[in-house]
Amino acid sequence: MKADTASPRRPLWQEKPSLFGQGGKTVAIVVISILVLYPFVAVLGTSLSSETEIAEHGGLVLWPAHPTLNAYRMIFTGSVVTRAVVVSLAITLAGTAFSLLITVPMAYALAQRRLVGRRFFLMAALFTMMFNPGIIANFLLVTNLGLSNSYWSLILPSLVSAFNLVILRSFFMGLPQELYDAASIDGAGDLRMLLRLVIPLSKGVIAVVTLFTAVGYWNEWFNALLYLNDSTKWPLAYVLRFYVDSGQSLVPPSVTADAGVAPQAVSMATVVVSIVPIVALYPFLQRYFTRGVLTGAVKG
């Protein structure tokens, strides 16, 4: 093998792969990407299709010839989905904000080697990763705290995750000790150190933890099933389970039939609405995943 025929990225010692191997890998990449992306594209396409087009294609439309927003208009004129979107956004924003306000300072405190009782507090937090009280115990706790039918029943049970705490703490501990020393010589207290020094240096890892927390709240449906009887308080993920997953129609069939909108398009539009916020945040944050922000922390 001559060096100049190799691709510039290929190390010199590595032989050029066989045509078969190279072709196989390319096919694998394409097939895997299609398997992941196909459901997204199909659901988006179907949500934008008219009733006749869906019928012609036998259920799923990848690329609607005459895209229409009728299905979206329909779910947003009704109150169920509109309300649920507002509830989900509010729960996600509030829950994530509370969660970070508690988790970040706790991680900072646990990262300080001098902290009195550090081992005890750390073990108490880490041990929670190893057992699960179970749904019965959780249910009895939340109802006995009087949180049924309150939005707090969606926020409080998953307020702090030991996993996120560990990620943040490992990152804080990885910051150079001299930074802490220099700042404390300058007379900075812990609060100032956290706000002025540590948080600005940890934007990436905080962004990742924010995403984990926000996605967790956005996708939460089980607590709504357990605690919320009042259907006006349901978040979008639970509306999805109640109507779409169980095949109930969100909009009365007579209304969809009059407007020429397929019930399937209405369901798919709801699915798309519930995916959009995740997909919208994703590009801003996914670069951190490939940079190994997590890998160091996963084992810590």
């Binding site: 895997i32 990407s33 992941v36 992306l37 459901p39 997204f40 659901v43 995403l211 996605v215 956005w218 996708n219 939460e220 449906w221 993920a237 639970y238 999805l240 389970r241 779409v244 997953d245 369901s267 699915v271 519930s274 995916i275 995740i278 997909v279 994703y282 590009p283 996914q286 995943f289 490939t290």
Partner: peptide, 18 residues
């Protein structure tokens, strides 16, 4: 990587619908 990481963030109610 970006493609295959994405489904991790999709909740079960959505995945079942898909």
């Amino acid at each position: 990587q970006s493609v295959v990481y994405l489904p991790h963030f999709i909740g079960w109610t959505i995945i079942v619908a898909l």
